[in-house]
Amino acid sequence: MTITIEERREQALAALPPHREPGFWARTNRWIRTHLVQFFAAFALLFMFLPVMIVVLFSFNVPAGRFNYNWNQFSTIAWTNVWSDDQITSAVKLSIEIALVATTVSVVLGTLIAFAIGRHNFRGRGGINLLIFMPMATPEVVMGSSLLTLFVTAQLEGSLGFGTITVAHIMFCISFVVVTVKARIAGLDSRLEQAAMDLYADERTTFMKITFPLVLPGIVAAALLAFSLSFDDFVITNFTSGQAVTFPMFVWGANTRGIPPEANVVGALMFIIALVVVLVPEVVKRVRKN
């Protein structure tokens, strides 16, 4: 028995399941499956930001008791009063002074190292890489206690304070500066420098007009990172501070008797200032492009 090709085609079509658009749930299901990674990423970001939001939110709280853990009442008192508390003011001031010195010194020392590693070949690379990595990986307690041991052995126990804290902060900031600046140097297109030299720029001019301006964003990022690491350090500072009270030391001391909302204001301000510093150049760049 023979059938025409049209009949065969109709049979085949009839045998197919009826075609219909995938339903709402099927579509949602597929969308979720293809975006699963982003869901987890969003969850990770939420996990990272939830505590920051709590810090900011509770700067507007009037704690019912000593502890600022439960929401009681909205108020801006802490924001208007923040600098009237002498303890907070002097702690923040000391932290800023230490962070400024530590940032300046560590950025200079770290940038020099980053150029050496990123731009030169030399013997002993492995050892240098290791010595830069170790402070980042060592627990702060170990570094803090070993620095205290050094200072005690050198009979500097009596003069623990601004100097010893700053020395310690410079030490652990150097590694982070090296990593940040080195990444920027590694990403540079070396043909730009070659082009400059082909156009008869000498080494110094090439460095000042091409290399340094291109590396500068990395140096600025490193400075920002060093400043916030130093400003925020507690564990190492706790070992090297003697009687000096930095802002994290103040928070730690206040914890047992209740952290005042004014401390949250300082935390929120740090966050806002850092975001502005990071985001404004980005926005300016985009606006200029348009």
């Binding site: 970001l45 939830l50 505590p51």
Partner: peptide, 24 residues
Amino acid sequence: LLLVLVIAPFFTSFLLRTTAWSTI
């Protein structure tokens, strides 16, 4: 922007962020 968001929590005092977990 996302990279900035990853390091942004660094910029608030980490002791305060840790005590925030007492609330959460």
